[in-house]
Amino acid sequence: MKTIHKILYGTFLILFLSSCLGENKEVINDAKQELGIVQKEVEEVEVKKTPDLEIQASEIKDQKIEEKKPKFEIIKLTQDQFLEFDDLSEVDFLSGEIEVTGKTIETVDKIKVNFTNENSDFPDDSYLLTQFKSGDDIFLYRALSRYETLDFGENKYVFFAYSGDKVSKTELIIHVEKEEEKKEIEGEIVDVEKIDEIVVADLPVSTDSGYPIQIGDNKLTYSGIKGLEISKKGKSDLTCENITEFLQDSLGTWFYWNTCRDIEKDAGLSYFVLRLDGEKYIYEKHYIIFKDLSYGVYELEMGTGVTKDNIAEKNTELKEKNADYPTLDIVDKLFIDVSK
């Protein structure tokens, strides 16, 4: 009871002093101390909390949340849809080559693909899938840097699928961001681009081949030659005798090669390669320049109907046509100029 009386008396005293003394906090605080009310400690706790909250708020305010664009998007442009696309989530978008595959939902007569990229110097392109036949269940479109249909930035592909008098339109958007690739060498981190870098300014320009265009990390093509890719993967000791060993390490598929020749004496080599790529065959001419190990691949022909069982016969057949490819002289002359 005495304690209760003391508390009531103390409370009354505080109220009385507050009304009488107004702003004189020292007298009031002394009365609070007698009652065991430690206001000072409470104020210190609150002061400690306030800066922490301010720091957290500042960190949240200053933090920039970057929303990364998805690597690819599929947008239906018409209500009718005749194509279904396979997943592209595991595709290497920096490889310079993307295969877009899928299946037909209805009977499709033909498929056309329009390409645009506002961030690129590559021209707009419209391509009819020549390997696709009316009624086929599956389709394939290859976006290639060396064909100027895949570049850094936002690549847009509109697929037109024709079925009778109807057409479905589907837009595929592929985002390719340039990344600084790093590599650890003897404990030091270095930029891969700085190793064996292709210096575009040192390359020749002509009215036939055009001018060099960067298409990826240390890869380029020429504006006047579709199907050409030049990179830095040559081998300094490559000869006509060890081409098979070199291609086994670099291709990883069934292949045949033919007609190995000097580009210029001791300056480089060229040879033709037939290789399998899934159900397709691809016939190319390869070039290597010894002075800087530039390696060029020029695609001549692509088709189907070749397997590991008949690839040797196809190689012999295509070898007979080597002189018939009309643009090959331009590419040969380009690599002679590069080798000088």
Results as ranks from 00 to 15, higher is better:
residue 40 K to G: 13
residue 41 E to N: 09
residue 42 V to A: 15
residue 44 E to S: 14
residue 44 E to H: 08
residue 45 V to P: 00
residue 45 V to C: 07
residue 48 K to T: 05
residue 48 K to D: 11
residue 50 T to W: 01
residue 52 D to A: 15
residue 52 D to I: 15
residue 53 L to Q: 15
residue 54 E to D: 12
residue 55 I to T: 15
residue 59 E to I: 15
residue 60 I to Q: 13
residue 62 D to F: 10
residue 63 Q to H: 10
residue 64 K to T: 11
residue 66 E to M: 03
residue 67 E to C: 12
residue 68 K to R: 10
residue 69 K to E: 13
residue 70 P to I: 01
residue 70 P to A: 08
residue 72 F to N: 10
residue 73 E to T: 15
residue 73 E to N: 10
residue 75 I to R: 04
residue 78 T to H: 04
residue 78 T to F: 09
residue 78 T to D: 07
residue 80 D to W: 06
residue 80 D to K: 11
residue 80 D to A: 11
residue 83 L to K: 02
residue 84 E to W: 08
residue 85 F to G: 02
residue 90 E to T: 14
residue 90 E to W: 10
residue 91 V to S: 07
residue 91 V to T: 09
residue 92 D to H: 06
residue 94 L to Y: 07
residue 95 S to T: 01
residue 95 S to Q: 03
residue 96 G to H: 05
residue 97 E to V: 13
residue 99 E to F: 05
residue 101 T to K: 06
residue 102 G to R: 02
residue 102 G to N: 02
residue 102 G to D: 05
residue 105 I to E: 06
residue 107 T to E: 07
residue 108 V to R: 03
residue 109 D to S: 03
residue 109 D to W: 00
residue 111 I to K: 00
residue 112 K to Y: 10
residue 113 V to C: 04
residue 113 V to P: 04
residue 114 N to W: 03
residue 115 F to K: 00
residue 116 T to A: 09
residue 119 N to E: 15
residue 120 S to P: 06
residue 121 D to W: 07
residue 121 D to E: 14
residue 121 D to R: 09
residue 124 D to N: 14
residue 125 D to N: 15
residue 126 S to D: 14
residue 126 S to K: 11
residue 129 L to N: 02
residue 129 L to A: 04
residue 130 T to I: 11
residue 131 Q to C: 07
residue 136 D to Y: 02
residue 140 L to M: 13
residue 141 Y to I: 06
residue 141 Y to V: 08
residue 142 R to Q: 14
residue 143 A to Y: 04
residue 146 R to H: 13
residue 147 Y to M: 07
residue 148 E to R: 08
residue 148 E to M: 14
residue 148 E to L: 14
residue 149 T to P: 02
residue 150 L to C: 03
residue 153 G to L: 00
residue 155 N to M: 00
residue 155 N to W: 00
residue 160 F to T: 03
residue 160 F to K: 03
residue 162 Y to M: 12
residue 163 S to N: 09
residue 163 S to A: 12
residue 165 D to P: 05
residue 166 K to V: 13
residue 166 K to P: 06
residue 167 V to T: 11
residue 168 S to N: 06
residue 168 S to E: 04
residue 170 T to H: 01
residue 170 T to A: 05
residue 172 L to P: 01
residue 174 I to T: 05
residue 174 I to K: 01
residue 174 I to F: 01
residue 177 E to W: 12
residue 177 E to Y: 13
residue 179 E to K: 01
residue 180 E to T: 13
residue 183 K to W: 08
residue 183 K to P: 02
residue 183 K to G: 11
